[in-house]
């Protein structure tokens, strides 16, 4: 499959009064057509920023300070606003965290759908309306013909996220950036929404960049996964490899912290300490203060992602040939 999206050495900066914060630092990744790439990491690891940079909606004063973003081989990170606007929704859709606030409370959901459809597709008003009803049906909203005329506040949280998904898919984009689409929902609803998203994207051949901090969601949904830490990619690779045979000590720690049904342990392991603030990232590898297998090179030199197994991991231990970074 061809590469749908390619991100090379992306750097996102936030100029502040007390110096420039680097939210995303030298991130490279790619997404193939129809593929689901999971992006995990703690809050502030830069995963949402990467997503926002891709659809060109970084909030000022945040800006792309380096690197490039290519959509089907065409560079999109330096497009003028109007050209980027035409890509948003049509080529790259987005779903945000909170469905309660993603919909404009003053407009009927049908009108919001029709508006989006008419912006991108050359349809008549009647066709757009029919399509809006169809979209609501696709996302599993009961009696869609009636519901198009309802306002967002008349939907429950899970139903609203379905509407948001319908909106994101309205113009059949090739890629959807789903930024923690289930974080604000009940656990029971989360699984439904994720499987819905997975099914729809599979049917329509839409690729997904799924940003989340829920490793379980990633394990179920993603084809490949990128683990982010302090604005950088710690490890990226096929999801089974990363989960079963993590290379980076941070990933190892993450996996150890996930409870699972068959596991017979007294306590879950946890990673000591917390992620460094953006203005206090240590020299060398950003993970070095918390790393159980740290050695002298980690303190002075920052590792770039390097081949490890079927993926890449940014760790000097990997280079040393230690297949498994033992914890």
């Amino acid at each position: 499959m061809s590469q749908l999206l390619e991100v090379n050495h992306l750097r996102v900066e936030f100029p502040t009064r007390r110096g420039t914060l680097v939210a995303v630092d030298d991130v490279s990744l790619h997404i193939d057509a129809g593929e689901v790439l999971g992006v995990v990491g703690e809050s502030g690891a830069g995963k949402s920023m990467t997503g926002a940079a891709i659809i060109g909606l970084l909030e000022p004063p945040g800006r792309i300070a380096g690197g490039e973003i290519l959509l089907e081989g065409r560079r999109i990170d330096n497009l003028p606003y109007a050209a980027m606007r035409a890509i948003r929704g049509r080529q790259i859709g987005a779903i945000f965290q909170d469905p309660l606030t993603s919909l404009n409370p003053l407009y009927k959901v049908g009108d919001q759908l029709v508006e989006t459809i008419l912006t991108h597709l050359p349809l008549s008003l009647a066709d757009a309306k029919a399509r809006a009803v169809q979209l609501l049906e696709d996302v599993g909203i009961p009696s869609p013909g009636e519901r198009v005329n309802h306002y967002p506040h008349q939907f429950s949280g899970g139903m609203r996220q379905r509407v948001v998904i319908a909106l994101a898919l309205a113009a059949e984009p090739k890629l959807i950036i789903a930024d923690e689409p289930t974080t604000a929902l009940d656990v029971s609803i989360q699984a439904q929404i994720i499987s819905l998203l997975k099914r729809l994207c599979h049917e329509k051949g839409t690729a997904v960049m799924l940003v989340t901090h829920d490793m379980g969601v990633i394990a179920e949904t993603a084809d490949r996964v990128a683990v982010m830490y302090a604005g950088r990619i710690a490890e990226i690779g096929p999801v089974q490899d990363v989960i079963k045979r993590p290379k980076h000590p941070y990933t190892v720690g993450l996996m150890g912290a996930i409870p699972s049904m068959g596991m017979d342990v007294e306590r879950l392991t946890q990673i000591d300490g917390s992620m460094p603030r953006l203005n206090a990232i240590p020299k060398g590898c950003a993970f070095n203060p918390r790393c159980p297998v740290v050695f002298d090179r980690c303190l002075v030199e920052r590792p770039d992602p390097m081949p490890a197994g079927n993926g890449l991991a940014a760790c000097w231990r990997v280079m040393q040939g230690a297949e498994h970074a033992e914890v």
């Binding site: 659809i55 859709g93 987005a94 606030t101 993603s102 508006e115 912006t119």
Partner: peptide, 22 residues
């Protein structure tokens, strides 16, 4: 600054629609 304006932009709506409609 609200999410629905951000989402309206993410849907690729024209600026005019975002500013004056939403």
């Amino acid at each position: 600054r609200t999410d629905y304006i951000k989402f309206a932009r993410a849907r690729g709506l024209h600026n005019r629609a975002v500013h004056f409609g939403h």
